[in-house]
Design a protein around this nucleic acid. Structure first.
Lengths: 143, 143
DNA sequence: GTGGCTGCAAATGGTTTGCACGACC
DNA sequence: GGTCGTGCAAACCATTTGCAGCCAC
């Protein structure tokens, strides 16, 4: 599955007449390998940890993240005072529950909600392409 | 309703032993008066427009926004490269359908989805306070 | 070979902070 | 009167950018 992502990246890069680089692959790999949402700093740190042989400048991390987000492989979001966090966007679809106190993000997927969304879109004459949903609240640990 | 917010703000401020100031009221008022999500710049600009008599430094805008967010009167979010945007968190709830072609935004509210959200939150141990949902697609006129 | 990409360091610009004055309780 | 809040400008710092060398194609 991580391999699929890399193939996807290669395809995108080629179709745009751009270059495939180890750096872009590593940034994507780090995000794909994490089961959490990562902020820029964590991503940079994880690269040093997981790929000690490679040296990737912070500027390249930023450039890669922008690139990956622009082509739709990753997406980012920032809630309240939390720093911007990145995650894979091709990951099986999911929505988010966010604790307003500790910033914890829990992912979930609900068939019923997906169906309702389609129904509403149709009623309004929209052809849906994607969506994002964020539920805010206080998690068990913070109450 | 805007009056209710101001009362709420006065109560919060008093309960914390802090001071009630015109500036905090104006920042809250500007956000409450808008039907869109506003970024910091727009908020600062709107203050100059709607309250030409008052001069509020940008630093105060930031401090007021942090304060209002901290006490839960407003909330902020940033998705992708979009700048951080603020909105009332107590506002009557609604969701959004956005046309990716012409930018049209249609608001709606669906009872079924709200119910499903509550159900999920409960299952995950969250106490919900609010949520935001954005459906992206192409509207009838643009097809 | 050539254009895009990287690393470095400098520049940028949005956000925060220190301080003295003014406003609120 | 004593604090807290504000305005201003300087400080900060995460992010972006310019440039020379490097690498993928």
């Amino acid at each position: 599955m991580k391999q699929d992502l890399i193939e996807e990246l290669k395809k995108i890069v080629k179709s745009k007449g751009l270059k495939y680089t180890k750096q872009r692959e590593i940034v994507l790999d780090v995000i794909a390998s994490s089961n959490r949402h990562l902020d820029t700093d964590e991503i940079h740190r994880l690269i040093s940890d997981n790929h000690p042989d490679e040296k990737i400048g912070i500027a390249t991390v930023y450039r890669s993240l922008s690139f990956l987000e622009e082509v739709g492989l990753v997406s980012s979001i920032s809630i309240g005072i939390e720093p911007k966090k990145y995650e894979l966007s091709m990951k099986e679809h999911h929505d988010h529950l966010i604790c307003q106190n500790c910033g914890k993000i829990v992912e979930f997927c609900d068939e019923g909600i997906e169906k309702s969304q389609e129904k509403i879109a149709k009623k309004m004459g929209f052809k849906l392409t994607s969506h994002s949903m964020y539920l805010y609240g206080i998690c068990q640990d913070c109450r």
